[in-house]
Protein backbone atom coordinates (compact mmCIF):
# COMPACT_ATOMS: atom_id res chain seq x y z
CA UNK A 1 0.00 0.00 0.00
CA UNK A 2 1.58 3.24 -1.06
CA UNK A 3 1.11 6.56 0.57
CA UNK A 4 -0.72 8.00 -2.44
CA UNK A 5 -3.36 5.28 -2.43
CA UNK A 6 -3.80 5.85 1.26
CA UNK A 7 -4.50 9.52 0.62
CA UNK A 8 -7.65 8.65 -1.29
CA UNK A 9 -9.44 7.92 1.92
CA UNK A 10 -7.72 10.20 4.38
CA UNK A 11 -9.16 13.57 3.58
CA UNK A 12 -6.50 16.26 3.86
CA UNK A 13 -7.27 18.64 6.70
CA UNK A 14 -9.76 21.08 5.24
CA UNK A 15 -8.68 24.66 4.74
CA UNK A 16 -11.45 25.76 7.06
CA UNK A 17 -10.15 23.48 9.77
CA UNK A 18 -6.61 24.77 9.30
CA UNK A 19 -7.77 28.33 9.62
CA UNK A 20 -9.81 27.43 12.62
CA UNK A 21 -6.74 25.93 14.27
CA UNK A 22 -4.79 29.11 13.68
CA UNK A 23 -7.18 31.38 15.46
CA UNK A 24 -8.18 31.28 19.07
CA UNK A 25 -11.85 30.39 19.40
CA UNK A 26 -13.99 31.34 22.32
CA UNK A 27 -15.35 28.05 23.71
CA UNK A 28 -18.28 29.80 25.37
CA UNK A 29 -19.63 30.85 21.96
CA UNK A 30 -19.63 27.37 20.47
CA UNK A 31 -22.49 24.90 20.82
CA UNK A 32 -21.88 22.57 23.76
CA UNK A 33 -21.91 18.79 23.25
CA UNK A 34 -21.13 17.67 26.77
CA UNK A 35 -21.86 19.79 29.81
CA UNK A 36 -20.35 18.53 33.03
CA UNK A 37 -21.08 19.98 36.44
CA UNK A 38 -19.61 18.99 39.80
CA UNK A 39 -18.61 15.51 38.73
CA UNK A 40 -17.05 13.37 41.46
CA UNK A 41 -15.76 9.88 40.92
CA UNK A 42 -14.87 7.13 43.38
CA UNK A 43 -12.94 3.89 43.08
CA UNK A 44 -14.48 2.17 46.08
CA UNK A 45 -13.69 4.53 48.95
CA UNK A 46 -11.04 6.45 47.06
CA UNK A 47 -12.06 9.63 45.29
CA UNK A 48 -10.42 10.11 41.89
CA UNK A 49 -12.26 13.10 40.40
CA UNK A 50 -13.12 16.24 42.33
CA UNK A 51 -15.85 18.60 41.30
CA UNK A 52 -15.11 18.50 37.56
CA UNK A 53 -17.02 21.06 35.51
CA UNK A 54 -16.41 21.59 31.81
CA UNK A 55 -18.23 22.33 28.55
CA UNK A 56 -17.00 20.22 25.63
CA UNK A 57 -17.64 22.12 22.37
CA UNK A 58 -19.39 20.25 19.56
CA UNK A 59 -17.48 19.33 16.37
CA UNK A 60 -14.12 20.09 17.91
CA UNK A 61 -11.29 17.96 19.24
CA UNK A 62 -10.80 18.47 22.95
CA UNK A 63 -7.62 17.10 24.49
CA UNK A 64 -7.29 16.22 28.13
CA UNK A 65 -3.75 16.47 29.43
CA UNK A 66 -2.10 16.07 32.78
CA UNK A 67 0.42 13.91 34.62
CA UNK A 68 -0.30 10.18 34.73
CA UNK A 69 -2.78 9.16 37.38
CA UNK A 70 -4.51 12.56 37.35
CA UNK A 71 -7.87 11.18 36.30
CA UNK A 72 -7.88 11.80 32.53
CA UNK A 73 -9.10 8.32 31.61
CA UNK A 74 -11.38 8.18 34.61
CA UNK A 75 -12.98 11.42 33.45
CA UNK A 76 -13.82 10.33 29.92
CA UNK A 77 -14.92 6.87 31.09
CA UNK A 78 -17.86 8.58 32.76
CA UNK A 79 -19.24 9.93 29.44
CA UNK A 80 -20.38 6.49 28.23
CA UNK A 81 -20.72 5.02 31.72
CA UNK A 82 -18.31 2.24 30.79
CA UNK A 83 -16.95 2.40 34.35
CA UNK A 84 -20.18 0.79 35.52
CA UNK A 85 -19.14 -2.70 34.52
CA UNK A 86 -16.98 -2.64 37.64
CA UNK A 87 -18.95 -2.87 40.83
CA UNK A 88 -16.99 -0.54 43.06
CA UNK A 89 -16.73 2.38 40.60
CA UNK A 90 -19.15 5.21 41.23
CA UNK A 91 -19.81 8.64 39.70
CA UNK A 92 -21.82 11.55 41.10
CA UNK A 93 -22.79 14.81 39.49
CA UNK A 94 -24.19 15.93 36.15
CA UNK A 95 -22.93 14.80 32.75
CA UNK A 96 -25.27 16.21 30.14
CA UNK A 97 -24.88 15.10 26.55
CA UNK A 98 -27.16 17.17 24.31
CA UNK A 99 -28.92 18.41 27.42
CA UNK A 100 -29.70 15.00 28.91
CA UNK A 101 -28.00 13.85 32.08
CA UNK A 102 -26.50 10.47 31.20
CA UNK A 103 -25.88 9.66 34.86
CA UNK A 104 -29.63 9.49 35.39
CA UNK A 105 -30.80 5.96 36.21
CA UNK A 106 -33.30 6.01 33.33
CA UNK A 107 -30.59 6.43 30.69
CA UNK A 108 -30.64 3.64 28.10
CA UNK A 109 -27.03 2.47 28.33
CA UNK A 110 -27.07 0.70 24.98
CA UNK A 111 -28.28 3.84 23.19
CA UNK A 112 -25.81 5.96 25.14
CA UNK A 113 -22.90 3.76 24.08
CA UNK A 114 -24.06 3.78 20.48
CA UNK A 115 -24.02 7.57 20.61
CA UNK A 116 -20.69 7.77 22.47
CA UNK A 117 -18.01 5.64 20.84
CA UNK A 118 -14.81 4.74 22.64
CA UNK A 119 -11.27 3.92 21.52
CA UNK A 120 -8.87 2.37 24.01
CA UNK A 121 -5.14 2.46 24.72
CA UNK A 122 -4.58 -0.88 23.10
CA UNK A 123 -6.33 -1.87 19.88
CA UNK A 124 -9.17 -4.21 20.78
CA UNK A 125 -10.21 -6.11 17.65
CA UNK A 126 -12.88 -8.67 18.43
CA UNK A 127 -11.87 -12.30 17.77
CA UNK A 128 -13.58 -12.38 14.38
CA UNK A 129 -12.99 -11.30 10.80
CA UNK A 130 -12.28 -7.72 9.76
CA UNK A 131 -15.73 -7.53 8.18
CA UNK A 132 -17.50 -8.99 11.20
CA UNK A 133 -15.73 -6.59 13.54
CA UNK A 134 -17.47 -3.70 11.80
CA UNK A 135 -20.71 -5.54 11.07
CA UNK A 136 -21.00 -6.57 14.72
CA UNK A 137 -22.05 -3.16 16.00
CA UNK A 138 -24.26 -2.49 12.99
CA UNK A 139 -26.17 -5.71 13.62
CA UNK A 140 -26.56 -4.78 17.29
CA UNK A 141 -28.26 -1.50 16.56
CA UNK A 142 -29.96 -1.81 13.17
CA UNK A 143 -32.25 -4.18 11.33
CA UNK A 144 -30.25 -4.07 8.14
CA UNK A 145 -30.22 -6.36 5.14
CA UNK A 146 -26.98 -8.04 4.07
CA UNK A 147 -26.51 -5.44 1.34
CA UNK A 148 -27.08 -2.55 3.71
CA UNK A 149 -24.62 -4.01 6.19
CA UNK A 150 -22.02 -4.45 3.46
CA UNK A 151 -22.47 -0.82 2.39
CA UNK A 152 -22.17 0.41 5.94
CA UNK A 153 -19.06 -1.70 6.58
CA UNK A 154 -17.43 -0.23 3.51
CA UNK A 155 -18.43 3.28 4.49
CA UNK A 156 -17.11 2.87 8.03
CA UNK A 157 -13.81 1.41 6.82
CA UNK A 158 -13.42 4.31 4.40
CA UNK A 159 -14.09 6.84 7.15
CA UNK A 160 -11.61 4.93 9.31
CA UNK A 161 -9.00 5.31 6.52
CA UNK A 162 -8.57 1.55 6.35
CA UNK A 163 -10.63 0.44 3.35
CA UNK A 164 -7.79 0.58 0.83
CA UNK A 165 -5.64 -1.68 2.97
CA UNK A 166 -8.23 -4.31 3.84
CA UNK A 167 -10.77 -4.40 1.03
CA UNK A 168 -9.28 -7.58 -0.42
CA UNK A 169 -9.07 -9.45 2.87
CA UNK A 170 -12.26 -8.62 4.70
CA UNK A 171 -12.81 -12.22 5.78
CA UNK A 172 -9.41 -12.53 7.44
CA UNK A 173 -9.13 -12.37 11.23
CA UNK A 174 -8.80 -8.82 12.50
CA UNK A 175 -6.04 -9.95 14.84
CA UNK A 176 -3.79 -10.50 11.82
CA UNK A 177 -3.68 -6.76 11.11
CA UNK A 178 -0.83 -4.57 12.33
CA UNK A 179 -1.33 -2.60 15.54
CA UNK A 180 -1.98 0.67 13.73
CA UNK A 181 -4.44 -1.00 11.36
CA UNK A 182 -6.18 -2.63 14.31
CA UNK A 183 -6.60 0.74 15.98
CA UNK A 184 -8.07 2.27 12.81
CA UNK A 185 -10.35 -0.77 12.63
CA UNK A 186 -11.54 0.03 16.15
CA UNK A 187 -12.19 3.63 15.11
CA UNK A 188 -14.12 2.37 12.07
CA UNK A 189 -16.05 0.00 14.32
CA UNK A 190 -17.03 2.89 16.56
CA UNK A 191 -17.97 5.03 13.54
CA UNK A 192 -20.09 2.24 12.04
CA UNK A 193 -22.84 2.69 14.64
CA UNK A 194 -23.07 6.42 13.89
CA UNK A 195 -21.90 7.95 17.16
CA UNK A 196 -21.97 11.69 17.76
CA UNK A 197 -19.17 11.77 20.29
CA UNK A 198 -15.95 9.74 20.11
CA UNK A 199 -13.80 9.22 23.19
CA UNK A 200 -10.18 8.30 22.63
CA UNK A 201 -8.11 7.15 25.56
CA UNK A 202 -4.47 7.39 24.44
CA UNK A 203 -5.28 5.74 21.12
CA UNK A 204 -1.68 5.89 19.91
CA UNK A 205 0.14 4.70 23.01
CA UNK A 206 0.63 1.15 21.68
CA UNK A 207 1.51 1.87 18.06
CA UNK A 208 4.48 3.14 16.10
CA UNK A 209 5.05 6.77 14.98
CA UNK A 210 4.03 6.19 11.34
CA UNK A 211 0.76 4.57 12.38
CA UNK A 212 0.33 7.35 14.91
CA UNK A 213 0.53 10.04 12.26
CA UNK A 214 -2.10 8.18 10.20
CA UNK A 215 -4.42 8.19 13.16
CA UNK A 216 -3.75 11.86 13.80
CA UNK A 217 -4.67 12.56 10.16
CA UNK A 218 -7.81 10.56 10.71
CA UNK A 219 -8.74 12.53 13.84
CA UNK A 220 -8.32 15.66 11.75
CA UNK A 221 -11.05 14.44 9.39
CA UNK A 222 -13.30 13.17 12.18
CA UNK A 223 -13.77 16.64 13.57
CA UNK A 224 -16.00 17.52 10.59
CA UNK A 225 -18.66 15.00 11.61
CA UNK A 226 -18.05 14.16 15.26
CA UNK A 227 -17.12 15.66 18.58
CA UNK A 228 -13.88 14.12 19.77
CA UNK A 229 -12.53 13.97 23.30
CA UNK A 230 -8.96 12.75 23.28
CA UNK A 231 -6.51 11.79 25.96
CA UNK A 232 -3.30 12.21 23.96
CA UNK A 233 -0.29 10.10 24.84
CA UNK A 234 1.94 13.13 24.96
CA UNK A 235 1.64 16.90 24.91
CA UNK A 236 2.91 17.23 21.35
CA UNK A 237 -0.05 15.20 20.17
CA UNK A 238 -2.43 17.49 22.04
CA UNK A 239 -0.81 20.48 20.38
CA UNK A 240 -0.97 18.86 16.93
CA UNK A 241 -4.54 17.64 16.82
CA UNK A 242 -6.71 19.40 19.36
CA UNK A 243 -8.71 22.63 19.24
CA UNK A 244 -9.25 22.84 22.98
CA UNK A 245 -7.28 21.50 25.90
CA UNK A 246 -8.16 20.80 29.49
CA UNK A 247 -5.37 20.43 32.02
CA UNK A 248 -6.08 17.95 34.81
CA UNK A 249 -4.17 17.68 38.03
CA UNK A 250 -4.92 15.24 40.84
CA UNK A 251 -8.52 14.82 39.74
CA UNK A 252 -9.22 18.56 39.40
CA UNK A 253 -9.68 20.47 36.16
CA UNK A 254 -7.09 23.20 36.54
CA UNK A 255 -7.58 25.03 33.27
CA UNK A 256 -9.59 24.69 30.09
CA UNK A 257 -9.23 26.76 26.94
CA UNK A 258 -8.17 26.89 23.31
CA UNK A 259 -5.16 24.63 22.79
CA UNK A 260 -3.10 27.44 21.39
CA UNK A 261 -3.68 29.58 24.44
CA UNK A 262 -3.04 26.74 26.90
CA UNK A 263 0.26 25.95 25.24
CA UNK A 264 1.49 29.51 24.77
CA UNK A 265 -0.11 31.65 27.39
CA UNK A 266 -1.87 29.69 30.12
CA UNK A 267 -3.63 31.58 32.87
CA UNK A 268 -2.67 29.17 35.59
CA UNK A 269 0.79 28.77 37.09
CA UNK A 270 0.37 24.99 37.49
CA UNK A 271 -0.57 24.63 33.83
CA UNK A 272 2.44 26.65 32.81
CA UNK A 273 4.74 24.54 34.96
CA UNK A 274 3.36 21.36 33.41
CA UNK A 275 3.52 22.64 29.83
CA UNK A 276 7.07 23.83 30.25
CA UNK A 277 8.07 20.53 31.77
CA UNK A 278 8.74 21.67 35.28
CA UNK A 279 6.79 18.71 36.64
CA UNK A 280 4.74 15.73 35.54
Amino acid sequence: MTATEERVFVKPPSEVAKQRRGEIEDASRLPVKVKIRSLNFYYGGQQALFNNSIDIPAFRVTAIIGPSGCGKSTHIRVYNRIFEIYRSHRAEGIVEIDGKNVLSPVTDLLKLRKKVGMIFQRPTPFPMSIYDNIAYGIKLHYRASRGEIADRVEDALKRGALWGEVKDKLSEPATALSGGQQQRLCIARAIAVEPELILMDEPCSAIDPVATSKIEDLIETLRDSYTVVLVPHNMQQAARVSDFTAFFYKGHIVEFGPTKKIFTNPDNKQTEDYITGRFG
Binding site: N80, I82, I85, L109, L110, K111, L112, R113, K114, G117, M118, F120, T124, F126, Y136, G137, L140, H141, C186, R189, A190, V193
Partner: peptide
Protein backbone atom coordinates in the same frame (compact mmCIF):
# COMPACT_ATOMS: atom_id res chain seq x y z
CA UNK B 1 -11.82 -6.25 25.16
CA UNK B 2 -15.01 -6.61 27.16
CA UNK B 3 -15.08 -2.85 27.66
CA UNK B 4 -14.92 -2.30 23.93
CA UNK B 5 -17.77 -4.74 23.40
CA UNK B 6 -19.87 -2.87 25.94
CA UNK B 7 -18.53 0.33 24.40
CA UNK B 8 -20.28 -0.26 21.06
CA UNK B 9 -23.51 -0.91 22.93
Amino acid sequence: LKESAYGVG
